[in-house]
Design a protein around this nucleic acid. Sequence first.
DNA 1: CTAAAAATTGACGACCTGGTCAGGTTACAG
DNA 2: CTGTAACCTGACCAGGTCGTCAATTTTTAG
Lengths: 214, 214
Amino acid sequence: MARTTEKLDEKIRARNIRIILDVATDVFSRKGFDGARIAEIAELANLPKANIYYYFSSKEDIYSTIITNLIAGWDDALSKLRVDQDPADALRQYVRAKLVYARENPRESRLFASEIIQGARFLSKKDRAHMRAATDRYVAVLDQWMQEGRMRKIDARHFFIMLWGATQFYSDFEPLACDALHRNSLSEQDYDSAVDTIVSSIVSGVIPVAQPNR
Amino acid sequence: MARTTEKLDEKIRARNIRIILDVATDVFSRKGFDGARIAEIAELANLPKANIYYYFSSKEDIYSTIITNLIAGWDDALSKLRVDQDPADALRQYVRAKLVYARENPRESRLFASEIIQGARFLSKKDRAHMRAATDRYVAVLDQWMQEGRMRKIDARHFFIMLWGATQFYSDFEPLACDALHRNSLSEQDYDSAVDTIVSSIVSGVIPVAQPNR
DNA sequence: CTAAAAATTGACGACCTGGTCAGGTTACAG
DNA sequence: CTGTAACCTGACCAGGTCGTCAATTTTTAG
């Protein structure tokens, strides 16, 4: 990359790289790493296959780039939990942010899920450490709330896994979610209902305090 | 299949088919449909590739067979909800049964997840209808409990999606779960903690009834 | 305009893919 | 033992796979 020609470089390079990454996200999310074909990516990008290799050195290069990008985008999008917030409000915001991201970026969501299911082979140690650290910060906030008596004592790590699983389901297993909800596709209202159900279940519980016997 | 030689037929056929389906489950779960290679299945099964094609007509044939089998095994393994049960007990049993199945059959779990993420291309209409019907039965039980005041009124369909997502996570996204829990692998105790956290969160809620302000 | 840097691309190679097939072996009924 | 049905398998094929490369065109700085 020459220093003096940065402007045009950026224009053509940036544009083509963006297009390639965009369509590659689509293909990888539908086929997984092994099933994806560079030829299909090239076709969707309207570029000859050789041009793909002008910008990326290999299939893995494209794939890893996407993964690193999406992890970065992820914790940008996530609503941050802060100790001074009201726990119930904060959790609602968190669940909502995660579902909004899942709705707006289903391909990234599925690509990531695919990668993990297939053994997290290309998830770099750095990215993993990054995610672990983020989890630890969230767990610390919940632990603090529990210590202050503002939240019941539960295992914060399993609790987050529960939230991730519940929210992830809507993007990754969309066909199943549609079936379960008797829908052809999920509307914004369905996502709102999801937030409501998840939040109200975990905040207040589903069993009434004074429980009648039969 | 001749009628008079059924005994030997069954022995050799059944054995080889079982072995093929077993190792194929492994390969498909790790690579997805497109990424899986028949040659690898043959190698792991210690059979020449041509022998695989003596028992199955195509890659898809193997794959579909596995999917139909695992769906059948699935609702056998699931704890059934009955209206006359105590809701809290019943939900605990359900969550436990799902996690036990996920722990004991991670390959099947991941294979199914892979299939759904990749668009449920080979999930037959019959299998889908079967799953929808099962969901409807579960939803009916919860609705009944709500009508009787034994459960808070929430959207039962989203509630089940939440349970599925939360439990599915432990098998499908095991590497992430391990990271989140600071483990190298998940022990039986981790699964017990998962059940406890999930059940106590959704049964009683995580926010104390009398919530102190700061 | 010119020269060099950047971008493009058709053709190709080495290997892999799902799937076939013909000719063999094994197991067993009678 | 004999015939036949079930079972096995090495060799093969047509098409697809990732990745390369040399030759060309486009862009831009000066």
